[in-house]
Simulated assay, not measured.
Amino acid sequence: MMRFEGKTALVTGGRSGIGRAIAERLQYEGARVFTAQRGADPRFEGIEADLGDPDSPDQIVSSVVDRAGHLDILVNNAGMMQEALVEDIGLEDWQRNLTVNLTAPFLLTKAALPHLRQTRGNIVNIGSIEGLGSNPRHAAYCASKAGLHGFTRAVAVDHGAEGIRCNAVAPGWIDTELNMEFIASMPDPDAFGQEIGRIHPVARTGSPDDVAALVAFLSSDDAAFITGQIYTVDGGRMAKLSLP
């Protein structure tokens, strides 16, 4: 199915993990895909950028439009996570988390809006179930992802009449390289991996492709009447109550 033939997509953090799966899915369905992140990306048309630099978003979007002529899909995927209690987070670290996870998507959206207005394009933000709940020691991450969910709704409300849709996907535990390395670091990786699977009603953890499938749907005309929504992709984890 070539739902994105003739369309141009920009995926931040598209070199690895969820971002790479999204970029691959959009390209598979016909899109010309640009990625933006630190370092080169040999798989796609990569743009090297530091998303902590407030000048980067304008430069990234300008590069895409200069090379492709238009922009149809923006996927704000790049993010970071830092584990620390509130009392132990320095202001600089707090600001860095918010800059990468929330301010960069804001600036990218701001830069992209004039071009998305011309193509009646759309935005998909990659939030997290931690924008809805919280794991321990994730105050900065949770705050930034909750903010991104709110930002998603605001963009949808403000720009829907211009033909621009904006939705967010909130993944749960996804088997990215980072998470697999975390499991491998446990004293008994097999037992830990089985326990992680058991907390999900579907009895498994997610794959990056699970997220990419939903992003592709939301980016397509099949979702033409959907905007301002936050979709959890978590195998039912948030729906399951702990035992009393």
Rank of each mutant, 00 (worst) to 15 (best):
A9H: 00
L10K: 07
L10F: 12
G14S: 11
G14I: 05
R15I: 07
R15Q: 10
I18T: 11
A23C: 08
R25E: 13
L26Y: 07
Q27F: 02
G30T: 06
G30V: 01
A31R: 06
V33M: 05
Q37L: 14
G39H: 05
D53P: 14
P57E: 07
I60C: 08
I60E: 05
S62Q: 13
V65S: 08
D66R: 05
R67P: 00
A68V: 00
H70P: 00
L71V: 03
D72N: 12
L74G: 05
V75F: 11
M81W: 10
Q82D: 08
Q82R: 14
E83R: 14
E83V: 05
A84W: 05
A84M: 12
L85D: 07
V86R: 01
E87M: 03
D88W: 04
I89T: 15
I89A: 04
Q95R: 15
Q95Y: 07
R96G: 02
N97T: 15
N97M: 12
L102H: 09
L102F: 09
F106W: 09
L108N: 06
K110F: 02
A111S: 13
L113A: 03
R117P: 09
Q118I: 01
T119R: 08
R120M: 05
G121W: 03
N122H: 07
N122F: 09
I123F: 01
N125A: 08
G127K: 09
I129H: 06
G133R: 12
C142A: 09
A143I: 10
G147C: 11
L148V: 07
G150V: 02
G150A: 12
G150H: 14
F151R: 14
F151Y: 15
F151I: 11
A156N: 06
V157P: 05
H159C: 07
G163S: 05
R165G: 10
N167H: 02
V169L: 03
G172S: 09
I174M: 11
D175T: 10
E177T: 15
N179T: 12
E181H: 09
S185V: 09
S185M: 06
S185D: 10
D188R: 14
D190I: 00
D190L: 01
A191G: 06
A191P: 11
G197Q: 15
I199L: 06
P201K: 06
A203N: 14
T205V: 11
G206W: 05
G206A: 06
D210E: 12
V211E: 02
L218F: 01
D221P: 04
A223D: 08
F225K: 06
F225T: 10
T227C: 11
T227A: 06
I230C: 11
Y231G: 01
T232G: 08
T232S: 15
V233E: 02
V233G: 09
D234E: 03
D234T: 06
G236R: 03
M238D: 09
M238V: 09
A239E: 02
L241C: 12
L243W: 13
P244M: 00
